[in-house]
Amino acid sequence: MSAHKSGWDTCALCPRLCRSSCPVATGSAREAATPSVIAAVMLDVERELLPDSVGRDAITLCTDCGACQEHCHLHIPLPELLRQTRLERVPRPALEPLHPIEGIGDWIAVESDERPFAQILGTALGTDVRRWHTSDHLGVESMAYSGFESRLERIRAKVGSGRVVVISGGVAKVLQRAEVGFQWLSEVVRDLPQGEGSCGSGGDRPLACCGGAGPLREFHRADALRTGALWLERSTEWVVQDARCRAHLGECGGAVIDPLDALMERVSARDSG
């Protein structure tokens, strides 16, 4: 079979120079998670040399952090290609509508999982905090849906003058696209305890932030600095800011820093004390 046109070509032929930038490939040590290997898998799926199921396994290894594109000298938009491909190939329900923002107060806590972020933040700040719960409607996956651009204006309108606090890199990306200002939890509540342990490395060094990509990198860097974590752009150690990061990097059995977990422990200790 001869080679044929595909968006995967250059990455599939690349000597895997982006591996060290990828939090999943580095954290899990799986060669299969290397972005250029994922591209090779997808090329062979398209050429019907590998089954679709292997392609789905490969593309869902990507956490969409964008680090590979930033690392690449050619700046190939592989994350976008993977996002589009996941949309096409991985079955999903329709995009949920934006949830209402519940409660009163200036602050808005975006809850991206089942933890009571708004309640905990309200206790910590001693003020009312509104709750904006999200599953995929405000996460990075929503960016892959065709209706994404049209909801950016509605996101801005919902937030209004509220002070948004986030714990998820994916949500942060969406808010940034919507040009909505936000703060990380660790910017609002200072001196959150430093995590210990490591992800995959087995050492006793503090964890570091995976970095995200583009303008978000600075937010991640600040977050890492405030939590006392190392900042290593190429690292085997990561702060997990995203549910999918947590799922993937959890495979290697490492501890993770999560500012909200730390805050919950602090509030809980204060309440019981």
Partner: peptide
């Protein structure tokens, strides 16, 4: 023993292997 992991460990950067891969 997943096919994905076995596939990923099958090829290094030998250009002869890259040529073979590119040609299917």
């Amino acid at each position: 023993t997943e096919l994905l992991d076995r596939y990923a460990a099958a090829r290094d950067l030998w250009p002869g292997g890259t040529l073979e891969f590119w040609q299917g």
